[in-house]
Design a protein around this nucleic acid. Sequence first.
RNA 1: GGGCCGUUAGCUCAAUCGGCAGAGCAACUGACUCUUAAUCAGUAGGCUACAGGUUCAAUUCCUGUACGGCCCA
Length: 504
Amino acid sequence: MSSTIRDQKIKELDEIRKKGLEPYPHKFERTQTTQDILKAYGEMEAGEVREDEKVKTAGRVMAIRNHGKSAFFELKDFYGTVQGYIRKSEVGQDTFDFFKEHVSTGDFIGIDGFPFKSKTGELSVYTKGIQLLTKTLRPMPEKWHGLKDKEVIYRQRYVDLIANKESMQRFKTRFEVIRLIREFMHDNKFVEVETPMLHYTLGGASARPFITHMNTYDVDMYMRIAPELYLKRLIVGGFDRVFEINKNFRNEGVSYKHSPEFTMMEFYQAYADYNDLMKLTEELFGFVVKELFGDYEIEYQGHKINFKPPWNKVTMQGFIKEHLGVDILNDSDETLLETLKEHHNEPEIKDRSHLIDGLWDLVEDHIVQPTFVMNHPVEISPLAKKHRDDPRVTERFEPIILGREMGNAFTELNDPIDQRERFEKQVAMRDSGDEEAQMMDHDFIRALEYGLPPTGGEGIGIDRFVMFLTNSASIRDVIPFPMVKPGSLEEEYSEETEQDEEAK
RNA sequence: GGGCCGUUAGCUCAAUCGGCAGAGCAACUGACUCUUAAUCAGUAGGCUACAGGUUCAAUUCCUGUACGGCCCA
């Protein structure tokens, strides 16, 4: 059913080969991209022709406008689009016929010729030679409305990228953001490192894992939920400033701001505390935003967000008290629970850490502009060092923008005895049914016993940052190949395979 | 996990109260030597997501399933 156009194209492959031509040649010697051409000749006058100049470029044919014995076509590459012009009286009968019969929208072609500007002022390549580089078998999506079906957009991102210019631009921005982050980190003397994706012991965050199996050792392993404990081991070993940009995996719900597989940058700086990191964080965000937009203020889904340092600072205790009237450090469990009930946000597990988390959930949406929320209670911060002035809280902060956690940072807990006690509390929570509580990592404690210098560490969610920078409402829009349920195209695949077999 | 909405030609979308399944683009044939959403004439393309039910008659009403979107947890 879907294959009528495809069937025609498959037959056409044979016709092309019978003429002694190859629909999938190995190589084309391109000397200019569309951008190079625009740079070199963009200033020409309308109607100007430069027959002495040579242009040789390649790309995907996005449109053909036939005019009998001549034709215009649009050639698109990664950098842009250039118009081609082909005329029978110039290229001869054979070449012109080949173009008319066998070059269709969607195909990749290579052309050579010379630049000119049409009467209407469009820079074009007056084509003397043309080579088919890749024949496409599938029809391109509609050229004017583009591709709108979200399912196709997510499952077949390559089609989305071909058809929707905004989508291509969004991903260009994503990867530019990552490049800028690397640039910033390198400029600040951080060394980019890699740590394991497969872990024997979960650590560094509170989340449900993906479980896999290693055959050689016949042992189950976890896809990492965070690289934290390994990065700190590098600091123990003598690294001074490290960062890692990579995936984390959390076996949890999918939403507009959650993806089970997401990209995070984590970094650790010896001899720094969380005050140093707040400064670094606002500088990093500010740097990326300024580089991209030339300004600190951006527009996101109807909100104006200003990344200009310095950012607001609030304490978790103060912010919750301001909005709900309860004091998470001084009020009793009962009082906290009562407030949660009033707001219909009663947690399943009613220990102090879940009560505090629940209260925070109620107020975080009040934050719009970039803000550091500081000094989280010890109970919800098992890897953070206790505050130097108040042992009930930790030296921890989260950068929050529009109610979204953009990261998580602290002065690292480097006291091995304290760390062991914190892990033991987590293990007790785990044993009593909290699947997200952390595990005991004996080797990590041993590493701390060898000595972790005073260190500040932080993780930043890259996808969420890119959402702000590309004005994307859903995290799926900034992940090239987001999670989708498997299977909806399977039937079609097997049908086509059958048909293709029969055709042979 | 819950609620609401959606799924019709390759793509973007129509189809009145339940009464013959429609358009534009893409494809194909033809005309056209400066067009750019080219234009003009024609042709073909559908198990209306899937499985049931109600009815003389279902794209339309009902039930279930799959996939997707939005909101909530």
